[in-house]
C-alpha cells in the first residue's frame, strides 16, 4: 500500500465572471514511504495547489486521495488538521518563520500542537533538531538576524521536528542563491533519508529537481513523469505531454 495515492484528482475554481478555471486535471500520483519526488513546472501551473492538496491544506474538486489507504475526503477538518500536524512537514519558499520568535521558538512551534511528551519536551526536541541542521549555536537568534540559508535551515528543522512521514517542500531554494540552495537541498535530502520521510519537492529549478528519485512535470494542470539527467536537463518525456503551449515541447530546460 502506498503512503499517498492520488487518483484522477482535479481542482477547479469558479472565477468572479462565472468561468471555471481548471488548476489540476486528472492527477494520478503514488508516493511510497522514504521516496524522494520532484515536480517541476512553470509558475501558475498548479504546483502549489498540488502540494496543498497533498498536505491536506486544500481539497480536490474530484478524484480520490488516499492516505495509507484511507480516503481523506471522509475525514473531518479536525482530523485532517491532526494528520497535517502529525504526518506532514512543510518547507516554504519564503521560509515563513514566525516573526518575533527565536530560532528555537520557531522550531518548537509545531510541537505546541502535539500531545503528551513531545509537547512538554518541545524545547529540548527543537534544540536537538536545530543542532542537527547545524544551528545549535544560534538557538536564541531572531530570524531577521539569520542569513537566507540559515533561515531555511530553521524552516527545515521546524518541518522535521515532529518526525513527519511526508515532507512537502514548496520551492525550497527559490529565495536562495545557487550554492546555498544546493546546501539546503543536500541537508533536506540527507535528513529526509535518515528519518525515512517521503520528500516531495516542487521547484522550477531542474538541478534541484534532479536530486529526486522520481521526477514529474506539471503543465497546464497535468502531471507527467519525466526523466532528468544530473545537470538538470529533461532527457525523456514519459506519457502524454500537453501541447497547449508550443514552448513546452521545445524548451523544457527553461521551466
Amino acid at each position: 500500500m502506498s503512503l499517498l495515492e492520488l487518483t484522477d484528482v482535479t481542482r477547479s475554481v469558479r472565477l468572479p465572471d462565472d468561468r471555471v478555471l481548471h488548476i489540476l486535471r486528472g492527477i494520478t500520483l503514488s508516493v511510497d514511504a522514504g521516496e524522494h519526488i520532484s515536480v517541476v513546472g512553470r509558475s501558475g501551473t498548479g504546483k502549489s495547489t498540488l502540494l496543498n492538496i497533498l498536505g491536506l491544506l486544500d481539497e480536490p474538486t474530484s478524484g480520490d486521495y488516499l492516505l495509507e489507504g484511507t480516503s481523506v475526503a471522509r475525514l473531518s477538518s479536525r482530523r485532517r488538521a491532526w494528520l497535517r500536524g502529525d504526518d506532514f512537514g512543510f518547507v516554504f519558499q519564503q521560509f515563513n518563520l514566525l516573526p518575533g520568535r527565536t530560532a528555537l521558538e520557531n522550531v518548537a512551534a509545531p510541537l505546541m500542537y502535539a500531545h503528551g511528551k513531545p509537547f512538554w519536551r518541545r524545547f529540548r526536541l527543537a534544540a536537538s533538531m536545530l543542532d542537527r541542521v547545524g544551528l545549535g549555536d544560534r538557538l536564541d537568534e531572531m530570524p531577521d538576524k539569520l542569513s537566507g540559508g540559515e533561515q531555511q535551515r530553521v524552516a527545515i528543522a521546524r518541518a522535521l521536528v515532529r518526525s513527519p512521514r511526508v515532507i512537502l517542500a514548496d520551492e525550497p531554494t527559490g529565495a536562495l542563491d545557487v550554492d546555498t540552495g544546493g546546501d539546503v537541498m543536500s541537508l533536506l535530502d540527507e535528513i529526509a533519508s535518515q528519518t525515512g520521510a517521503a520528500l516531495i519537492a516542487i521547484t522550477h529549478d531542474l538541478a534541484v529537481a534532479a536530486r529526486a528519485q522520481r521526477h514529474y512535470r506539471l503543465a497546464e494542470g497535468v502531471l507527467v513523469p519525466i526523466t532528468l539527467n544530473a545537470p538538470g536537463r529533461i532527457t525523456e518525456w514519459v506519457g502524454d505531454v500537453p501541447t497547449d503551449r508550443p514552448d513546452d515541447a521545445v524548451a523544457p530546460a527553461v521551466l
Partner: peptide, 16 residues
C-alpha cells in the same frame, strides 16, 4: 493572517 496560516500548516485546528 500569514502566521495563522503557518500555524494551520503545523496542525492547528480551526478551534485551536
Amino acid at each position: 493572517i500569514r502566521e495563522i496560516g503557518i500555524r494551520r500548516s503545523f496542525g492547528a485546528t480551526s478551534g485551536r
